[in-house]
């Protein structure tokens, strides 16, 4: 559905994106994560047709995006700071969008009023940040997009609303194969709903993988021996991180589970645990491997 090939973008001296390629299938919920300043928002804005890339190619459904009304009529972008016209009520915004978006569904708008439970006569700017975001979702879902581009979407939403919004998004994906691309730092939420992850760092795409493949490729090993560690233990292993805590060695290793398991077992350890990592942990260890880490500072 989305094909991005070697996109580059700079703002005067700052290179925001450097030959970034990515690919999103229809009906996928793609999670774009990365360090601060990695270029996530820039990439999303290029995708939404707000910015124009300096180099490379970008297509949605094989069509270029910039100034393409038919594609833009099927796409919605919710920025990280929700913007609504000053003094507009929810009803006013609904009228505005209804006249622009070909797939505005008034019946859905009214049905969703029960979900969001905010009076349509309220002026949006008088609502709390969280409620403004809810309004963004309300309007976005009503225009029945084929593609939702979300920048920090769940930020500021209470746990009940988070669940409701996630559920609405998932229903649309399940029912009509809507595609979603989400950028967020909340990796726990992302882990719950994304099926594909792209990790951006300093303008470059580091890793792009199916989330389950990403998780099955990295493991945390806790291993201890009753005598000394065999010296060849770490040979031929892709170790991202290691730490000795007393007699237990903690390793973060890349590779297939079964291979690593049999390797470790062959040394006859006294204690052996091979655990999966959370997306947050994978992010931190992969970043650490690239030199982006916090070294504990002691004052």
């Amino acid at each position: 559905m989305i094909e991005i090939e070697r996109i580059g973008k700079r703002f005067q001296e700052t290179v925001a994106l450097r030959e970034v390629s990515l690919s999103v299938r229809q009906g996928s919920i793609y999670g774009l994560v990365g360090s601060n300043g990695a270029g996530k928002t820039t990439l999303l804005k290029i995708l939404a047709g707000i910015y124009k890339a300096d180099s490379g190619a970008l297509t949605i459904d094989s069509q270029p995006v910039f100034e393409n009304y038919s594609i833009k009529g099927r796409t919605v972008f919710i920025p990280d700071a929700p913007y609504h016209f000053p003094n507009f009520t929810i009803k006013d915004m609904a009228h505005f969008y209804a006249r622009i978006y070909p797939r505005w569904n008034q019946a859905r708008f009214e049905k969703l009023e029960e979900v969001f439970n905010i009076e349509v006569k309220r002026r949006i700017r008088t609502l709390s940040k969280g409620m403004q975001r809810q309004v963004s979702f309300w309007l976005s879902l009503t225009l029945t997009p084929d593609l939702m581009i979300l920048d920090e979407p769940l930020d500021g939403l209470d746990p009940v609303m988070r669940k409701k919004v996630k559920n609405l998004i998932i229903q649309d994906v399940a029912e009509r194969k809507m595609t979603v691309i989400i950028s967020s730092h909340n990796l726990r939420d992302m882990e719950d709903i994304c099926d594909y992850i792209g990790i951006l760092h300093q303008g470059e795409m580091l890793i792009q993988k199916d989330l389950d493949d990403l998780k099955s490729d990295v493991h945390k090993i806790q291993i201890a021996f009753s005598s000394d560690s065999p010296p060849a233990l770490l040979q031929d292993l892709q170790v991202l991180y290691q730490e000795k805590r007393g007699s237990v060695l903690i390793l973060i290793v890349r590779g297939p589970f079964s291979e690593i398991m049999s390797r470790m077992q062959s040394y006859r350890p006294a204690v052996l645990d091979i655990l999966p990592l959370t997306l947050e942990e994978i992010f931190i260890y992969e970043m650490g491997d690239r030199g982006y880490e916090i070294k504990n500072v002691l004052y």
């Binding site: 996928s28 229903q171 719950d192 099926d195 389950d212």
Partner: peptide
């Protein structure tokens, strides 16, 4: 059905498909 379970559990339908 995949979409029913996805909705019930609030997880990605692709995951259920898998």
């Amino acid at each position: 059905a995949v979409r029913v379970l996805a909705s019930e559990l609030t997880i990605n339908p692709n995951t259920i498909q898998k």
